[in-house]
Nucleic acid binder design. Structure first.
Lengths: 200, 200
DNA sequence: GTTGACATCTATACAGCGTTAAGATGGTCA
DNA sequence: TGACCATCTTAACGCTGTATAGATGTCAAC
């Protein structure tokens, strides 16, 4: 509740504070700049304190990754639904790439199997939910015909690959001078029109 | 020269031994299992020895990554050139995904900007050369029309995204029971036919 | 209210890490 | 032979994640 402004007794809700601290570190320094001890430092507790709430560092990072999937899903769903599924999917794809570039640390963490516990029961649903925007748009257009899973995966592959390459700076070897955003906007229509079986 | 079979004086060629040791560690334990000290241990030298040859750990890992790009290029070029560019590209794409799955550690390292020094003058050419197989196949079919760079990037995005998702085990949420290889073979034709402007 | 049980956090320690600095060692060339 | 230089060792520093034992505060039962 933060009712008194000094560091309280047993800190109150260390769990949430550690998650917030970890997310902030990752946003500032990237996933490589994260350390469990610094998260504890920022939360004002001793290095051993996080263990009680999260076990290991992976436990804490898994929480951040789950938040990342939630925020990715929110970003995808922020694109309005129109009567043009092709345009919708294009907007979602741009949102996906935009999310990767704007939240590089989170995005990289989300796809780091060594830092995230995939056996957490919340992981699968969180990942699926994040992609529900894609699935919905595709389903609205294909009318349920074909293998929906395969369609989502094909679209996801294309967009995910582009997000990764743009994030890794690979695009600069191909289009000098363009920002990743400009580059994405330029390439996306072509990429999507062809990777989506029912598009155009 | 390795003329005597005992550990010699100043070791002989520590540089090559360290690169080989690092590559072996990464192949065995993945990129997260790598440590500079263990590479030194395997080469039979002290922890400080690598510094003289590579500066920091990134220096050594950059060498491994450069080897990785070379081997990736070789894998792509191993697919024979026929008079059917679509089939060629399909084979190369399968080779790309196959490389990622067979050499996961190397592949992950190659795309880890924090572990590889992109400012190394050999980096850009190595990456470009690795993709020359894609570029050649695409160029052979498109006849030089259109933006060659953009075409390569679109194809690369799709395949790279699929390789990453398969490598990260994401495919298992969509096609249970199928091995990544089976999954790749199943999806690739669809992905490629649609991501490649001149295919089919 | 006092007491016991419990969750929470601290203090401390350990092994391992990357990196650095100073010095020993061996090869090479004048 | 002697000077020079590349190479490697030894030792140390501060950092990391994690484990253990104990202190501290909360809460429920009596």
């Amino acid at each position: 509740m933060q009712s008194s402004d000094e560091a309280p007794y047993h800190h109150g809700n260390l769990r949430a504070a550690l998650i917030a601290a970890a997310d902030a570190i990752i946003a500032e320094k990237g996933i490589e700049g994260f350390s469990l001890r610094e998260a504890a430092r920022r939360a004002g507790v001793s290095p051993g304190a996080p263990a009680h709430h999260f076990g290991t560092a992976v436990g804490l990072l898994t929480e951040v990754a789950l938040l990342g999937y939630a925020s990715l899903g929110a970003a995808l769903n922020a694109a309005p639904i129109t009567d043009d599924p092709t345009a919708d999917l294009r907007a979602q794809a741009l949102a996906y790439v935009g999310f990767a570039l704007a939240h590089a640390g989170r995005f990289r963490l989300m796809f780091r199997p060594d830092l995230v516990n995939r056996d957490d029961p919340r992981y699968g649903p969180a990942a699926t939910a994040a992609l529900s925007g894609f699935a919905g748009t595709i389903g609205r257009s294909s009318g349920g015909q074909g293998d929906a899973m395969a369609q989502v995966f094909v679209v996801w592959s294309s967009i995910h690959g582009m997000a990764n390459l743009a994030l890794d700076g690979k695009a600069q070897y191909m289009f000098d001078g363009a920002t990743p955003q400009q580059f994405a906007a330029q390439i996306l229509p072509d990429l999507l029109a062809k990777s989506w079986p029912y598009g155009r």
